[in-house]
Design a protein around this nucleic acid. Structure first.
Lengths: 190, 190
DNA sequence: ATTACAAGGTGATGTATATCACGCTAATCG
DNA sequence: CGATTAGCGTGATATACATCACCTTGTAAT
């Protein structure tokens, strides 16, 4: 198993190569934390102090509607970044919760350190730009999937796109991500 | 009416201030084009040469499914950026069409010039990072709207968020954006 | 002026998905 | 260990939305 620091470096260097000094600078902006299954990294109403890089484990980003129904906005597994980004960027209160589906180890980046990183090392701004572009494209793909497909096809597309994720997430949680009830998912996933 | 160059400068300076020299450098990477209602800026299967900044007019980004049904992935009006971004970033063939809903004037930025702009002027990389972050958040809001709401509520949220857009777009086109039929939209929009 | 088409509305009916109710099994925890 | 809960499946019924067919009105083109 690779340590958290090496994972982060390898992850970043998929996009921008870094010298040892540069990476030491990057590394100094992160703190490491460990959480157990069912723990909250962010609760609705909290200030959102960090964006998280997932070293190991699995998270869900949850939006709870006025009827108290929980919807999964996204999952985040190893090598993914996650937060309530609106609240993170604007330093507002969280409207979503970030919760462990498994024991999870994360590297935490505060908004101040995020800005320092972008200002101090142009490569990191490039890195975050690429990540943001990719996140946008993924969200747009999901919207197109919704526009064009019914529940069964959306489930099959999810299977195809994230086969590893599906094996680790209970079907009830996949249903909450797909926007159908667990009963419907049960009936269509044969 | 403001000219295209001033519009672009004002738009960028909402995020990063520029000196006259800096803006001249930025400006030199764009070309201007005008299109009539119903014209295509991008056709499915084309190479995607440009990302577009809309100076005036209104565009729709259209995905056509295998049953030839047309779905509107997004609209773009004054001060919005639009393209088939996946194809733009990867220099692949377009999977979507970009079409005028009104006579439209755009500033065109090629992928090469996009990279030159980011490399040559760090402020512009910052600008695109902010735009990309904002685009991601908007897409995520739309996903949450879909997870939590039925057609009527989604329509009302759209009305509330983009009141100006709604007045300029035929309801059949709004329906294709909301992911319902024009008949259903007609029945719920009383 | 006439035609043709775009935009919108509405009734009748079909289909996908939600809801409610219940049972089964296997993991988790005191 | 026994008790409790999470995860999953399934029938009966309700609801939201799609589909098909048709009509009206305004507007652009000839």
């Amino acid at each position: 198993m690779m340590d958290a620091t090496s994972k982060l470096r390898e992850h970043i260097e998929k996009i921008v190569p870094l010298s040892d000094d540069e990476f030491a600078f990057v590394r100094s902006h992160f703190t490491i934390k460990k959480y157990k299954k069912h723990q909250f990294l962010i609760q609705e109403g909290d200030a959102v102090k960090y964006a998280y890089f997932v070293v190991s484990g699995l998270l869900k980003l949850v939006f709870t509607d006025d009827m108290l129904k929980q919807h999964i906005v996204s999952f985040a597994m190893e090598d993914w970044w996650e937060s309530d980004y609106y609240a993170f960027y604007t330093q507002a209160e969280a409207t979503m919760a970030l919760i462990c589906l498994e024991d999870t180890e994360v590297l935490c980046l505060s908004f101040q350190d995020y800005k320092k990183l972008c200002d101090g090392l142009q490569k990191m701004e490039r890195f975050f730009l690429e990540k943001s572009n990719f996140g946008f494209l993924a969200a747009q793909r999901r919207i197109i999937s919704w526009l064009t497909s019914g529940a069964k096809e959306r489930y099959e597309q999810l299977l195809k796109q994230y086969p590893l994720l599906i094996q680790r997430v209970p079907k009830s949680q996949l249903a909450a991500y797909l926007g159908v009830t667990r009963e419907t998912l049960s009936r269509i996933s044969d």
